[in-house]
């Protein structure tokens, strides 16, 4: 079980395809979550995850061992997600992020505000153009480095940084808008 990804890939290529299940076990959660964050549908995420692993296995000879397997499979995932989005361009997706608040010490009111802000941010992520959305998910939710994102998306490092910068500002503006609406609502409530 402690074999490296590269060793497992080598063994698969030598004819031990059954060992591929170790790689599936290792990366299914990551791929599934990215696909889910990107599509907002558990059903689509399941299909994408399965297809990505099958596609990766069938292209195993194309894997360059100089790169990390995780980056390679992430690249297949993001390409696949973007392709699917292109095909479903007309449909709007709702990012269902399982709103959870485990902090039991916060008051009901705070919890409500937190959830509202959370929802606002989720909506804002959904509203981001795909090229920004994928970067913010990879960087802030999947902890991928700039270098990894640059490799995965085949973009220059400066472009990755620039897009992340803009995406953060867009999200901040969204939250700002929500806050403004909230305070206007409170002022109105006080006036009556």
């Amino acid at each position: 079980m402690n074999e490296s990804d590269k060793e497992i890939v080598d063994k698969c290529l030598e004819g031990n395809g059954h060992l591929y299940e170790i790689l599936v076990t290792r990366y299914q959660k990551k791929i599934y979550n990215i696909a889910y964050r990107f599509t907002g549908s558990k059903e689509d995420a399941l299909d994408i995850t399965q297809e990505v692993f099958i596609k990766a296995y069938n292209s195993l000879r194309k894997y360059d061992p100089n790169y990390k397997f995780s980056s390679w499979i992430l690249k297949i995932t993001t390409n696949y997600c973007l392709d699917i989005k292109k095909k479903k361009r007309v449909e709007t997706v709702e990012l269902n992020l399982d709103l959870q608040n485990n902090d039991t010490t916060v008051s009901a009111e705070n919890s409500y505000i937190y959830k509202e802000n959370q929802k606002a941010i989720y909506d804002a992520i959904n509203a981001l153009p795909e090229k920004y959305r994928i970067i913010i998910i990879l960087y802030h939710n999947q902890n991928q480095s700039y270098n990894e994102i640059s490799k995965v998306l085949n973009l220059p490092l400066t472009k990755v940084k620039n897009r992340l910068y803009r995406a953060r500002l867009m999200l901040k503006e969204e939250l700002e808008g929500i806050r403004r609406e909230e305070s206007e609502w409170i002022v109105k409530k006080l006036q009556y």
């Binding site: 031990n16 395809g17 299914q28 959660k29 399965q50 959870q100």
Partner: peptide, 25 residues
């Protein structure tokens, strides 16, 4: 944002849909 658990069937579905002897043959 918390990570969600993937359905347990992923591994079995993938393994049943790939040809594990593909590279051997």
């Amino acid at each position: 944002i918390e990570e969600i658990e993937p359905p347990s069937k992923i591994k079995d579905t993938v393994m049943s849909r790939i040809d594990t002897n593909k590279y051997k043959e």
